[in-house]
Computed example of a mutant assay.
Amino acid sequence: MKWYRRSLDHGDQNAKILIGYLYLRGNGVPQDYVIAFMWFSVAAAAGDQHAKRWAR
């Protein structure tokens, strides 16, 4: 998670959806569908087409 956050801090837009997947699956973080949805929504608002599918 630390590296995804650093990527996000450095402007990597893909990190948003990847962080969402971490929370969706519970990989390295507690599984949390609400936080996953939040990250997918943020990525979708930034124009990520894959995130738009998950943020419905």
Results as ranks from 00 to 15, higher is better:
M1F: 06
K2P: 01
Y4C: 03
R5I: 02
R5M: 07
R5E: 15
L8C: 05
D9N: 06
H10V: 05
H10L: 15
G11A: 08
G11D: 04
D12K: 04
Q13H: 09
Q13F: 06
A15F: 09
I17W: 05
I17D: 01
L18P: 01
L18C: 07
I19K: 01
G20S: 07
Y21M: 04
L22H: 09
Y23P: 01
L24M: 10
G26E: 03
G26N: 04
G26I: 09
N27L: 10
V29I: 15
P30R: 08
I35D: 03
I35N: 01
A36P: 03
A36M: 04
A36G: 03
M38F: 15
M38T: 08
W39M: 07
W39L: 06
F40D: 03
F40C: 03
S41Q: 13
S41A: 13
S41E: 14
V42A: 12
A44C: 15
A44Q: 06
A45G: 09
A46L: 07
A46G: 11
G47A: 08
G47R: 12
D48P: 04
D48G: 05
Q49A: 13
Q49I: 10
H50I: 09
H50L: 11
H50A: 11
A51K: 05
A51S: 12
R53K: 13
R53V: 15
R53W: 14
A55W: 10
A55L: 05
R56S: 12
R56H: 12
R56I: 10
